[in-house]
Design a protein around this nucleic acid. Structure first.
Lengths: 201, 201
DNA sequence: TTGCCATCATACCATTTGGTTGGTATTGAA
DNA sequence: TTCAATACCAACCAAATGGTATGATGGCAA
């Protein structure tokens, strides 16, 4: 009775949407399955039909929502860039914005919570970070070829540092009461990015 | 019956020790009070006698354990330094170590989990970060006076960036499957620290 | 049209959650 | 020695947790 029209694709999407909303805001342990199904408008039967358990739901969320969201915010834009100034502009756009970036902070929070404790989810999260790092490293590599990045720069090292710094931004920004701290840190980061430039000679 | 000898100071210490162990590893939401009292060897009556509720326990943990642990790892050592090389050595010692630093990663994880959601705990965590940032800024300020930090450097900015980066390290290190990433990122960080040096002339 | 499986809903389950209650033993001050 | 406040324990509690059992319905192949 009161059975909704059967639409498994949409149903799965609705569940992942609700999971995204909860996991992003409350973390993994902080999100209850009841809250998720309540938000999705579905029932526990639908949830456990599409996902084996809570972990599988989190895995689906990381692979199909969190990862693509990071790709859209960073990876894809980075692939299109071809100058240091454009890179600095993108960083400024992402970090100097007033509202805290909930996508990166969700990735950071769930990584801090789960990566060391759950191997499967840790690997899924590592995939996201790897794509991010690779996109930055590829950009710097292009810069070395094109001559706007200093030849002594090692792209993989800088990429690892930059991703770490982005994550650190999102976490510390949650804490710092005055949003000024975020701006101060970015100013320093922007100065650091400038040091990557090939010296005019 | 079976009443342990009354020692309120020791009891409170035991509870905070157990809370430290659980909160550091499982996070706030992931830590159950039952697990904490079970580890402490005490009972729920003792816990709720010394702490009003779970939040108050977390507040006590941050103020009396997590904060002082960060002070011991960073603030106090930083206060004793007086050269850029010594600063770089301290960073290398803290980050290039094989085992992940559980103190900073605990601070990072609990900040990502709570800072935006709980004002009281957020303020307590902000205190820890502020002391950390202040210690770095003070060091850089000394460096400018002594002439081993470039005059154009703005200590507050660099301090905010460095703390963010430290936090980012601890989080991303949890995820990255190969510990090499940590080393790559540190190498880049070390290169960045060198750019703070006053130019020989 | 029939039959069957995927897709849902409903009701239920054991366990765990943070938190209380009422009491007992200990302690230090009077 | 008395006495009240402190420190602690054991048992209990309602609510929420992740998860299951069962059944109903829809759609599609035969």
């Amino acid at each position: 009775m009161n059975q909704r029209k059967k639409q498994p694709v949409q149903t799965r999407k609705d569940i992942l949407d609700a999971a995204d909303h909860e996991f992003s805001r409350q973390g993994y342990a902080g999100s209850g399955l009841n809250a998720i199904i309540s938000r999705s408008g579905l029932t526990k039967g639908a949830l456990f039909h599409h996902f084996a358990d809570k972990r599988a739901l989190a895995k689906g969320w990381i692979d199909e929502r969190l990862g693509p969201a990071i790709d859209a915010l960073w990876v894809t834009p980075l692939d299109a860039l071809n100058s240091l100034d454009a890179f600095r502009s993108l960083c400024r756009e992402r970090f100097n914005s007033l509202e805290p970036d909930d996508t990166v902070s969700a990735l950071s929070a769930v990584t801090a919570e789960l990566a060391a404790r759950d191997e499967m989810l840790g690997i899924a999260l590592d995939d996201v970070f790897t794509r991010w790092r690779t996109a930055i490293a590829a950009l710097l590599e292009r810069g070395k070829s094109s001559g706007w990045i200093h030849p002594s720069i090692q792209p993989a090292n800088e990429a690892a540092l930059l991703v770490s710094t982005c994550v650190g931004f999102s976490v510390t920004a949650q804490s710092s009461l005055n949003p000024e701290i975020r701006r101060l840190a970015f100013t320093a980061l922007d100065g650091y990015l400038e040091t990557l430039r090939a010296h005019e000679s």
